[in-house]
Structures are given as structure tokens and as C-alpha cells.
Design a protein around this nucleic acid. Structure first.
Lengths: 346, 346
DNA sequence: TTTAGCACTTGCCTCTTGACAGTGCTAATT
DNA sequence: AATTAGCACTGTCAAGAGGCAAGTGCTAAA
């Protein structure tokens, strides 16, 4: 079994070959043959030896053939092994510089730094990036403000403890004084400050009796609040690189695949596809839940500022993605965001 | 010249043929031949007669051939003539019902009604729809609010007279009391209430001397305001149907076209492509400014609630789009939005 | 254990071919 | 003068044939 060597720095020959095949295939998108391998990478073996090794790697399930006489392509298991044991820690210098430059400007909020960085990562790796805003579990209510617009309408503004803002305009029912409205809101404010976003609806539900007493149109108010907070999660999403991913040869002759992906991105069910398990998570091909993603991979990562989680990012693309570079870029980004915060504090 | 008949209800034979060719091609995306035409639409002429007419229509510039022995396809001029004089006013019943249903629910803000409707129009016509938020010319400042988050940071919230909200978190520099901040903001509020969004930056610039006097970190405050209002226009854009448009046969075998379109949608230069001239505007093919759009058409329309313009919508797709249906859907939507507003007022 | 050698497989490109859908033109018909 | 029948011609498309390139597996020798 290959995995026995997981703690050893030096890779054995099978591993070296697997690593080269993954890396070559990632670059070229062409099945890799024994001759290509020894010519490009100056391996000190004959093609026959390599062929034997490749045949064994195929038996073990790490490689696949597209047809009987083709070169080899990594299987999902092969990619998995590569990600877990073989990838190295060099980050493309150009990419590193560009991310660095974004952080040097300093004029931005952390969330915007993340967005810009993902845009860059997207364009340099030809992957789609998804930036998810605050998590409704960790984000807490700060307060609600009411701004009257004219005699009959107002906008309610909801602020969270990390400075996220949601808003909703509504019509003030006849017979309601703005002053009454304001005092009611201040009453609600007192009770829900500090409540996690995910529980706000529940909490406001508990306040219904008090509202009913003080405010004739309590149903409307309740509805407004619920609608706004249901929206919360959905709205804080940015997607970059939809066009870039079309550079991937996987999609060059297959619009239907592309359509499935773009549909998924337009759809709420995308959220179910983004694992939230570890700090950094890699789902390769059919490890994903949606069958649409059977030949795609998703890398997700939490973005923490200090101890606070302030969102998540995901990179989505063909299974044949440059896992080393992507993972290293993400780790670099995580680290910069954390450093950025320290500087702000100090 | 065909256009002589523009005021006549009855179309002459050339016009009937042009209309049929446009409508058939819109449906099938296949060049239309003389035989197809008489078989499908029971024209009381022989194929030779139709061929003669088609040859003349081609000479006049209304039709084109894809190759010498192919059927005919409408030229840009042909579509233009169709849109101006030949389209009829039936709106697909299914589409009409679906839009109606959205408005019946009544639980939404006008902007959300528009968004939902465009989503539906998009999915039923396989076009991309773009919903533009408030125009920075017509939208005016209502006020600025400051919400402290903790001892060192706060979020500034900007509200317009129609209830649009923008926000920006910032760090409170050391040595600044929240009270000072609040009084400064109230000072600014007094001076900029009613200013169109587009002029806010300018106006605040004029206040610089006063700010400088009262507020040490006036540069930071100024920068914050500028950044927020530059963002204003960009943020209020929703795009629907990126996946739907891939159903269009024009894109089935041409990912590069698709890429150009999706790139354009991700890009700020898209705004320059959406004409803002008339109430409803149709740009066909090379009538568009961007050469990327040479074989695309864009229909834009203003959305007014009462006398207030509250945004614009655009539908983007291949030149071969169902102009009748799209234009009728938009007119229907405009009318519903206006009625909706009357009900609210009354 | 490694390698040289060789027969074999498959994909892909090009070329050809025939069917098909459509045209333009001419001559005949109304 | 307008319409139509008839026919030669043209370009597309799909299917099939042949050749080439890249790759394999296996056997036997080093």
C-alpha cells in the first residue's frame, strides 16, 4: 500500500510517478504516456519500466485510462492521494505578489480584501470562486434602526456586531405614529441585542405578545423582520470567474456541463454543496453531494479574523485543478487576513 | 420601399413573408426556405414565387443567406423592420400568468417584484436579464447614521429618499469620542439631505473646511464617504438567467461567444452597453456599441413607479430573440408596476 | 529487476461520397 | 405582367475509409 510512506519525506518511485502524472495532467489536460513522462522529466528508467509501474498504479486504483491504448489520467483516488500526501508547498510567485499587493493598499475592509483576492485567484487558476458572507450562527444582532423616508414609509436597518447591514423598506400603516414605531423598535432592540442572526426570528416570535400589546400592526412588523433575516444568508454571496472557467478545456466542447455548473451557482442548493467541516476542505469529484459535481472539485476554507469567523470562500473547478497552488494560495490568504487584523488592533 | 406602408394595417406580401421568416427563424434557429414557408404557413403561392420575393427582400437588405444554397435568415435591418412595423402585441399567456402571480402575492417591494418578474422572463425566453437599481442622478440622500459596534469601530449607514441603503464599516481613530463623531455626522446630515447621489461626493468636498475644523480625521471620513458612493452604482445590479442563455443554439457549439458575453456581464463596461435613451429601447446586433455584441440584441426599459424612475431592466440575448414577446412582457411589467403603486397610495 | 522489441489498439484527421435542402434561371402558363 | 413548373447547380452534413501518431501489454533477453 502506498500510504505506508505517509510520514516519510522521500517518495518512492510509484509516488514520484503518480505525482508527476497528476502535475503533468493538471497542466496539459492530456492523458500522460510513459514516453512523455521520461522525456519531460528525465526519469532514469525506460518507458517499459514506467509502463509497468503505471499498470500497477492503475490496478491499485490511482490511475485510469480513457481507452485501452491511451495514456493515464489520475482517478479521484489518485487526486485524493496527491492532495493528502504528495502536493508541495510552493505558491505561484505571480499570484503571491498580486495578493500581497491587494493587502498592501490597506484601504479596504477585510471582506473586500478577501473578495479581491478571490477574484485574483479565480483569474489566475481559471476556477470559479464563491465568497460567502457572515455565518448566521456566529453573527449577532447589534441593533435595529428606523429611518423615516416620508409620511408613509420608512426603512428598517439591521446591523450585526461585525458591521454587516441588512435593510428593508416598508409602508407605515395609517394611524401609526412614527414615535410609536420608534419606541417599539427600541423595545425590540433591548431584547434582541446579542442574539445570533439564526435565532432572531425565533426570538422575535417570543416577543409577539409584547408587540401585540404595543403595536397594532405587529403582524406586519413581524413579517418584515422574518423576510429580512431569511434574505440575510442569500444576499452576502459574491461569485467571481464565471467567465474564466470557460478557459478550462473540460468545458470547451461541452456547453451542457457548463450550464449545469452555472445553474448550480445561480441556485440556492449551491450552499448545500459547500462543506463546512474543517478549516480547509477538499471535495474531489464524486466526494461531492450533488451528482452534477461528479467531475468537479471544490475547495472550501473558513476565513477567520482573529478568533471570529467572518465568512467562507470556495473555489470550484474541474477535478483536474492545481490543488497545490490553490491550497497554498488559500493558506496564504488566511494568514494575511489574520496579520491584517493584528495590525489594525495594534 | 417597404416602409411606405407603415401606417397601413394590412401588410403587403413582402411584409407578410418577412414577418413569417423572422418568426419562424426565431422559433427554430434554422434558415428558412421557400418550401418550408408555404408548407408550414399554407401560403397560396408556389415556392418559385416565394423565392422571387425572398430574392428581392435580400436585395433590399432585409434578408441574408448563410451560404449560396441555404434558406434565408433575417438581417439586422430585417429585425429592425420587424420590431418597428411588423411585431404584434400578443404576450405568451403562460408568461403573463406567471408575472401576474408574482404581483398577486403583494408581499414584496416594487424592486423585488421587478427582480422576480425578470427572473421569470429570463427563464421563459432564455435571455439574460439585468436589473439595475436606482440611478445616481435621481436618487437623493436622506441621511447618514452611525452605529458604534465596539469601542474602536463603527458602521456608517447611508439612506436615500427611496429607501436604498449603503453601508461601510470603519475603525474609529484613537482619541476620537463617539459623541464628536455623532455631532459631526449630524452636521453633515443637515447639509447633504436632498443631494442627488451623483453629487454627494462633490458636496462633501465643499464641506471639507468645516470638517477640518471640527474633526481631526476628516480625511478618513471623506475617503469613507467617497468609497461608499462610488460603490453605490455597482452594487445595485442583479443578473439572472446566465444558465438559461446556454439553451440558445447560438451558443451550443461556441463557448468563446458565451465567454465574451459572461465576461461582459462580470465587467463594469457592461453599463456602457445599456442605452438609456427612450422608455423602451431595442439595440439590434451592431447597433450596439461593443463589438462583442455584434450578434446580440439588447432590450432596455425604464421602470417607473409613478413619476419616479426606480431603475432599469435589460434583456440580452442573440439577435434571434422573440422581440414581440419580450417587448410585450416588458410593457406588461411596466404597467403592473405602475398599477401596484396606485394601489399602495390609495 | 529492468529493458528492448514488437504486435496491437484507439483516436483523430483528412478525404470521399451520396443524400438533402435549398437556390436561381428559363420557359411555359395564366 | 405575374406566376409557376422544371431543372441544373451549390453548399452542408453525416457516414465511411485510410493513414498516422501515441500509447499499451507482453515476451524474451540483459
Amino acid at each position: 500500500m502506498l500510504k505506508e510512506v505517509m510520514n516519510v519525506k522521500e517518495y518512492n518511485r510509484k509516488e514520484r510517478i503518480l505525482k508527476l502524472i497528476v502535475e503533468h495532467f493538471v497542466k496539459t489536460a492530456e492523458p500522460v504516456g510513459s514516453l512523455t513522462l521520461i522525456e519531460k522529466y528525465k526519469l532514469p528508467y525506460s518507458s517499459a519500466t514506467i509502463r509497468n509501474e503505471m499498470a500497477e498504479l492503475e490496478n491499485l486504483g490511482y490511475l485510469e485510462k480513457t481507452h485501452t491504448s491511451s495514456g493515464r489520467v489520475p482517478s479521484a483516488k489518485g487526486y485524493r492521494y496527491y492532495v493528502d500526501y504528495l502536493r508541495d508547498d510552493t505558491l505561484d510567485k505571480n499570484l503571491k505578489n498580486q495578493i500581497q499587493t491587494i493587502f498592501d493598499s490597506k484601504s479596504m475592509r477585510p471582506e473586500d480584501l478577501v473578495k479581491h483576492s478571490c477574484e485574483i485567484i479565480s483569474s489566475m487558476t481559471n476556477l470559479v470562486s464563491v465568497v460567502l458572507g457572515p455565518d448566521s450562527e456566529t453573527e449577532r444582532m447589534k441593533n435595529i434602526q428606523i429611518v423615516p423616508l416620508d409620511s408613509s414609509s420608512a426603512v428598517a436597518i439591521f446591523v450585526t456586531d461585525h458591521g454587516y447591514v441588512e435593510h428593508k423598506a416598508f409602508v407605515i400603516p395609517k394611524g401609526i405614529e412614527i414615535k410609536d414605531l420608534e419606541s417599539t423598535v427600541s423595545l425590540i432592540n433591548d431584547r434582541i441585542t446579542g442574539t445570533p442572526i439564526a435565532s432572531v426570528v425565533e426570538k422575535v416570535n417570543g416577543l409577539k405578545p409584547i408587540l401585540k400589546e404595543r403595536f397594532v400592526q405587529h403582524e406586519l412588523l413581524y413579517k418584515t423582520i422574518v423576510e429580512t433575516f431569511v434574505k440575510f444568508a442569500v444576499e452576502h454571496v459574491s461569485i467571481y470567474g464565471r467567465a474564466n472557467i470557460m478557459n478550462q478545456p473540460e468545458f470547451k466542447n461541452d456547453v451542457s456541463k457548463l450550464k449545469n455548473l452555472i445553474s448550480l451557482l445561480e441556485d440556492d442548493r449551491m450552499f448545500d454543496c459547500l462543506p463546512n467541516e474543517n478549516d480547509i476542505n477538499v471535495k474531489i469529484g464524486s466526494e461531492n453531494d450533488e451528482s452534477v459535481l461528479d467531475d468537479m472539485s471544490i475547495v472550501t476554507a473558513n476565513i477567520n479574523v482573529g478568533n471570529n469567523n467572518c465568512g467562507r470562500i470556495a473555489l470550484i473547478g474541474p477535478k483536474r485543478m492545481d490543488y497545490s497552488n490553490v491550497l497554498n494560495a488559500i493558506e496564504y490568504l488566511q494568514q494575511l487576513i489574520d496579520d491584517f487584523n493584528d495590525e489594525e488592533e495594534g
